[in-house]
Design a protein around this nucleic acid. Structure first.
Lengths: 104, 104
DNA sequence: TAAATATGCAGGCAAATACCTGCATGACTT
DNA sequence: AAGTCATGCAGGTATTTGCCTGCATATTTA
């Protein structure tokens, strides 16, 4: 897992929208996804390429179509490495901050 | 919460390292944090500025020093909005993918 | 086989990013 | 007050990003 690629992929609203669209209906084609975006097909292709490079989406060709599926594994790994530990310590981190803001 | 700012902030290895450093010892000064990075102080300042803009870090001035604290709230919100739903559906999303790769 | 459909590939451009150097300010110390 | 230490601010540059247009290829349909 490359955290850089995953976070960069998630840092763009178009790409998050693509994930939401696939979450609603997994396995959509490029054209299907494009019809929900307000940009040229080629731009959407680039976004999907970035999602694929980050392994957040896997695509399969079927005839002249390209189907896209969410791969939940990298999100899980990001959660394990970068989110969970802050969640676990959440209250004590907030406590540090609060104490300092109160003037110790 | 602005997901763009949070994910962009997390998409740089230097900034993730800063969060790790603060996780080890909360409330460090700029100079203290810099001594663990391999770049000019001014560059580190910019990274900390981005973390602050994303609300992942809050700073407090004390005399001539600036102390930095982790704010766990945005990470929690990102988890709730962008991670948890994929976690919950994780196995069924993987199932979609596996089925397609097997040729349906 | 010709036309229509779905996608791929190349290149171009404006804006954002990540680094830097140089200088300024504000706060402790002696 | 003078010197030192911690940080702030301005600007410059190479690279990356996100969008586009134009053309090429591959697959289905008529």
């Amino acid at each position: 897992m490359d955290a850089d690629d995953v976070f960069k992929a998630l840092s763009d609203p178009t790409r998050r929208k693509l994930l939401d669209l696939l979450f609603e209906k997994n396995g959509q084609t490029l054209g299907e996804l494009c019809s929900n975006l307000d940009m040229a097909r080629q731009s959407a292709t680039q976004h999907l390429g970035i999602l694929e490079a980050a392994n957040l989406v896997t695509s399969v060709r079927r005839g002249r179509e390209k189907l896209h599926f969410i791969n939940p594994v990298p999100i899980h790994e990001v959660y394990e490495r970068w989110v969970r530990k802050f969640e676990v310590q959440r209250l004590s981190l907030l406590h540090d901050l609060k104490k300092e803001l109160e003037g110790e």
